[in-house]
Computed example of a mutant assay.
Amino acid sequence: MNSEGANANDRRDRETGTLGKLVSLLDVVALADGPMRFTDILSLSDQPRGTLHRQLSHLVEEGLLEVDRDGRYLIGLRLLTLASRSWARNEFRAIAEPHLHRLQEVTGETVHLGVLRGVEVIYLDKVEGRQSVRMYSQIGNASPAYCTGVGKAALSSLDDAELAARIAGLEFRAYTEHTLGDASALLSNISEIRARGYAFDLEEHESGICCVAAPICSDDRHMLAGVSVTGPAYRVTSQKLQAWAPLAVAAADSIMMDMRNRMGPKR
């Protein structure tokens, strides 16, 4: 390789490293429960104080982060705008959207669309029920797949080998007294989900919140997702969950059919 090519590679390596560090900082702030002070970010960063200050200043200048009146960092409007446009242009989300609204209309409860990423489910869309209930799920949030209806439904589409590989070494945190405690319990639950075609979350991730969910997958199994109907346990009885199960399955099937028609090979 000539010197010009070597210099170009070195420059790309430096730029990639810098970009990676900036993205990591965005992750730290975006995933925090609230605005973060500089010292909080410093404690989670491997950057020297001066370097970290410069990087945060660059992100603020670009509108990716903001600083509130107390000097704390939070996500900037520019990043929120980019995220909003990304969600709006997501083809899978666009395909699913009318089916989500129909499911919400017939059940009256909140409907979620989530996609599996590793051992987590990322919420792509949410249609609030007629009586909105405060819950953790928000578009863009990630939740453990093993204790959420959408996550377990998506996991059920994996073959046995891939499922075992993904949950190997997984730490099972007890979010509630109903959370599945280990891999054996999860595998048993997945077997039941495969047999009946839908999953339940019976206060496993959030106390007082229940749901029924159906799996969605592309023909090549490259994308695994799920759709759910969710509501408060005091209102959503087991009878209601059972009654909504075929509705969730029908919505998932309709989404998959539209995926084949609109995202399949073009001739």
Score class of each variant (00 low, 15 high):
N2V: 11
S3G: 11
E4M: 07
G5M: 15
N9A: 11
R12E: 05
R12Y: 01
R14N: 13
E15L: 14
T16I: 13
G17P: 06
T18S: 12
L19K: 11
G20D: 05
S24Y: 02
S24L: 00
L26M: 09
D33K: 14
S43M: 08
T51P: 05
H53Y: 08
G63C: 12
E66T: 05
V67I: 15
D68T: 07
R78E: 15
L80N: 13
S84I: 09
S86L: 15
W87R: 11
R89T: 10
N90Q: 08
E91C: 07
F92I: 09
E105M: 14
E105T: 15
V111C: 08
G118M: 04
V119R: 06
V127K: 01
V133N: 10
S137L: 03
Q138M: 11
Q138K: 07
N141T: 12
Y146E: 08
S156F: 14
D159Y: 05
A161N: 13
A165L: 06
E171I: 06
R173M: 08
A174H: 03
Y175E: 06
A183S: 13
S188L: 15
I190P: 02
S191D: 09
R194Y: 15
Y198K: 00
D201G: 10
E203N: 04
E203S: 00
S207N: 10
G208W: 11
I209P: 11
C210R: 08
A214I: 03
I216A: 02
I216L: 03
S218Y: 02
M223L: 09
L224R: 06
Q239Y: 07
Q239W: 14
W244I: 02
P246N: 01
S254E: 09
S254I: 04
M256I: 09
N261F: 03
G264M: 11
